[in-house]
């Protein structure tokens, strides 16, 4: 052995004979991982990307009852922009989305901080706060429709207690009905935000808090100045997820208000469904679906960008 290598003259394969092969493996084995992934990739390409493109194509056509392929450019988009109901739906989404996200964040973080004070029965409380997340939005809608019903629900109950002038009839009031969606959605999802924050709090290094205590900071101040800044990523993910839920909200509206009174509580998701499936406006419905996709991307891309960046740096 040592430095000089005996040159092989037996079994002298030409150099690089196998260099084209990408991995030392016997035929099929090398391709198995790719073969296993292939159906999923194909599914993804066809059912996600293909369908997105397909919907985009439909949105450029004048399709009504059935898809047709006579193109009208961006005509459906200008129709959409001129459609009052679309604007109501979009405005509703803004109101609903902003309130839903903010209130969930506030309630979720508060409950998490309170629960983090060595509470007896913490497990039971956590279970109660979080269980609505296991329910279908349809169930949530049915229950809250009943609770918000002026004749039989909360209003009737409080009036029954002797407060005759008590009014809580938002669900029948076109100006207020959108807020009932917020109430039901917050009821369903705020426990989840609590769980996210609690996991974040439990992940924080104890010594940071101890150091702040030694520095003489009060408890609320420690939370506000030391702990919350550490939870920035949690806030970020929570906003991301909640916004996503808000944009996709469909079932809740259907079950709680049916979009009504009139179309006062329409959201883009219900708008799209109504036009594409019941009002024979496939072109218009497709255009609205594309705008929804745009909305999701507008939230998703900055999120993914910062995720990837922080991962590279971190």
């Amino acid at each position: 052995m040592r430095d000089s290598l005996p040159m092989k003259n037996t079994s002298a394969t030409p150099l690089g004979a196998g260099a084209k092969r990408s991995t030392p493996s016997g035929g099929l084995q090398a391709w198995l991982p790719r073969l296993v992934l292939a159906p999923s990739v194909a599914i993804s390409l066809f059912f996600v990307y293909g369908f997105m493109l397909w919907t985009f194509v439909l949105s450029l056509t004048s399709s009504r009852m059935l898809p047709s392929y006579d193109f009208v450019g961006f005509g459906q988009y200008s129709r959409l922009m001129a459609n009052e109901r679309w604007w109501v739906a979009s405005t509703n989404l803004m109101i609903f989305g902003v309130l839903f996200v903010l209130i969930c964040l506030v309630i979720g973080s508060l409950l998490a901080i309170l629960l983090d004070q060595k509470i007896r029965q913490e497990g039971a409380l956590r279970t109660i706060y979080l269980y609505p997340m296991a329910l279908s939005f349809i169930v949530t809608g049915v229950v809250w429709k009943w609770l918000l019903n002026p004749q039989l629900g909360i209003q009737a109950m409080v009036q029954g207690w002797g407060f005759e002038s008590f009014r809580f009839d938002w669900i029948t009031n076109p100006d207020m009905a959108i807020y009932t969606l917020v109430i039901a959605a917050v009821w369903q999802a705020s426990g989840f935000v609590m769980a996210l924050f609690l996991a974040g709090l439990r992940g924080i290094d104890d010594s940071i808090v101890k150091a702040a205590q030694l520095d003489g900071a009060s408890l609320p101040r420690i939370y506000w100045r030391v702990v919350m800044p550490c939870l920035r990523p949690v806030v970020f993910s929570a906003v991301m997820i909640l916004a996503h839920i808000a944009i996709k909200s469909f079932d809740l509206v259907v079950a709680l208000t049916g979009g009504g009174p009139g179309y006062a509580t329409d959201l883009p998701a219900t708008f799209m469904y109504a036009h594409a499936f019941t009002r024979a406006q496939i072109g218009l419905g497709s255009a609205s679906a594309m705008l929804m996709l745009g909305g999701v991307l507008a939230i998703l891309i900055p999120y993914l960008y910062s995720e990837l960046r922080s991962r590279k740096h971190g």
Binding site: V48, G50, T55, L58, K248, Y273, A276, S286, M290, M292
Partner: peptide, 22 residues
Amino acid sequence: VFALMLFGCFIPFQVVLLPMAQ
């Protein structure tokens, strides 16, 4: 491949309803 598939978690399903029906 993973990034490609991951995107499926995020799309609003409205955007696939019509092609899916067909």
